[in-house]
């Protein structure tokens, strides 16, 4: 069949374009996934600054907050934002979480939720690492500690 290559390429193009078109219509291009790193390393002491849209939703921010440095870890990069009201840690969030592939994203997201609970009950960065997410836990603790230090120094 002489037309075989033509039919095959026509099908390929049709499949490719339709999926791409569907995807673009479903999710209008936003940069939400790609948090700009500019300024992220600077602490933001202002309580009024809205928490950045990130994979882990932040709770109601009241009091003073600080953003820890970006920590490169095993499967990606994250930073931790902490909010204190008086001497109490009222909220911890992860404005930036980037991983190279979805499995790491899933694992990290689960671990971060657990780490957040640990921090809120321990009221410090002295928490246990989550087993199965050692790298994520270490980076989280590191960034959190730096954020707390900033908060207490300022």
């Amino acid at each position: 069949m002489k037309r075989a290559p033509l039919l095959l390429s026509a099908g390929t193009a049709a499949g490719f374009v339709s999926v791409l078109g569907f995807h673009l219509r479903q999710a209008p291009p936003t940069v939400a996934g790609a948090s700009p790193s500019g300024g992220a390393s600077a602490a933001s002491p202002s309580a009024a600054s809205p928490s950045a849209a990130g994979p882990i939703p932040a709770g109601p921010a009241a009091g003073r907050s600080a953003l820890g440095p970006e920590e490169q870890y095993g499967y990606g990069v994250l930073d931790v934002k902490v909010t204190e009201s008086g001497t109490r840690i009222t909220d911890v969030s992860v404005p930036l979480l980037q991983t190279a592939e979805p499995t790491s994203q899933q694992i990290s997201e689960q671990a971060i939720a657990m780490l957040r609970a640990e921090v809120l009950s321990a009221q410090s960065a002295r928490i246990d690492a989550i087993s199965g997410a050692t790298y994520t836990s270490a980076a989280y603790i590191q960034s959190l500690q730096a954020a707390l230090d900033k908060l207490h120094a300022g």
Binding site: M1, L7, L8, G11, T12, A13, A14, G15, F16, V19
Partner: peptide, 20 residues
């Protein structure tokens, strides 16, 4: 010929899904 087109659509879809 229709089978060929379907095979092509599969290839295009697979590639596009990976990219999206």
């Amino acid at each position: 010929g229709a089978a060929l087109v379907v095979a092509g659509i599969g290839l295009g879809t697979t590639t596009a899904l990976t990219i999206t």
